[in-house]
Design a protein around this nucleic acid. Sequence first.
RNA 1: GGUCCCAUCGUCUAGUGGCCCAGGACGUGGCCCUCUCAAGGCUAAAACACGGGUUCGACUCCCGUUGGGACUACCA
Length: 467
Amino acid sequence: MTTPVRVRFAPSPTGYLHIGGARTALFNWLFARRHNGVFILRIEDTDRTRSTDEYIQAIMDGMTWLNLDWQEGPYRQTDRFDTYRGFAERLIQEGKAYYCTCSPEELEERRQQAFTEGKSPMYAGRCRERLLKPAEPAAVRFRMPREGQTVVQDLIKGPIVFDNSVLDDIVILRSDGTPTYNFVVVADDIDMKITHVIRGDDHVNNTPKQIHIYEAFGWEVPQFAHLPMILGSDKARLSKRHGATSVTAYRDMGYLPDALVNYLVRLGWAFGDQEVFTRDELIQHFSLENIGQSAAVFNPEKLLWLNSQYIINSSPEALAEAVLPHLKQDGTVAETAQIDMAWLGKAAYSLRERSKTLVEMAAQMHYYIADEIAIDPKAREKHLKSESLEMLSAVRMMIEAAPDVSAVVIEPLIHTMATAKGLKLGALAQPLRVALTGGTASPGIFEVMEIMGKDLVMKRLAKALGG
RNA sequence: GGUCCCAUCGUCUAGUGGCCCAGGACGUGGCCCUCUCAAGGCUAAAACACGGGUUCGACUCCCGUUGGGACUACCA
């Protein structure tokens, strides 16, 4: 029997869930699903000055929106300080860690000096052999080996070799008794029986240090998989400078969570030539071996295209649900209004091929819903001039007389009228379109009328014809 | 500075020594379709960073150069 897969996403709540974090979470989630494993959410908040509860909530909101559900957690490291102290105690007793009374100021000074001298700014090991007793205040450092090599067997990058001489005696307990990151990760990963550590490759240099801590506890080292970073268009690490990096910002801009997931997974991972995947396909095909080793540039245009694909392939029901919040957001629909969702679905569905985002869709939907619309001056100039108005007037009378404005009723009538007057369909359709929608671009004009219904159509025509 | 990682079209990538004068996708140009705008179809331009090896044969393996990136805290 093989041990069950247990993976974790371990963000620090010093900001919202950003694109890079979301992808790390996604890959962990996918890996867990693929292997019927457990996905754990762990909040790394040992830096109490920068961590906030608001950010913890924001991270969970982002994951929930993306449908990345976790089976355990959220665990908070600040709730587990006693556990860490126990772990540290063990290392001290076994001589694998030691007290250090060097002052931060002194250390910082030495660091700066080493830097200017072009030397490695490592801890020189003043207290390493001093066998200090517990003192106040004293930090606790981990005793790293000074000789030999450590090999990180990375599932994505292959073996990575480090000389142990470059490994610092890191602080595991600050002088105030709180534990630090490199120590806590290992303690937690041991405690939570993590089998695979999938994280950003900004952690590779920490990995050999962590391996020695695992070994100090006599624990089997988990498998590592270090994901390449996501870069901005200037190839620098993705940051706020590059525009929206918060996952929830994409929700607000009208992106579908599945589209963002699809985009994110393709950033670094590929399955032959396939571009669009369902969740099930992703789970079925996902594997760490197919992840590339080089950093990827975030490309908003491709994300936009994927979003449009997901919108095109959505059902009317799904579109109605998805677009409604945006209609309320931009005021087209009152917050408390009762909406006919079947009708809304039909309206949204008609716009699916011309809306790259739900925000765009909501904006266009305005002419289906609003009482009054503004007619674009240029469109009026071009399509609502004298002879067009006369034709439109004729059309109005024809529609007035029709039993309803469904496409099956109106379309043949308009075609007949065009033929009778020796006109192309466009000569009637464009003035009609401008009168009904206020602009020159819309879904097929017969579809538009059917969705608007006779009352609204007649109202718009009357308005356009000046009375 | 030190350590580590990376290098195929503008971008995401396929490619695991011969299938490649390099395939797909986004974006860009052209054409078709058409009541508008889209969507869709067809099509064009566009890449193996450079230099050495290894090999009968390198995009693929090795070394170096160059260029990017990450880490280098009593941050995570």
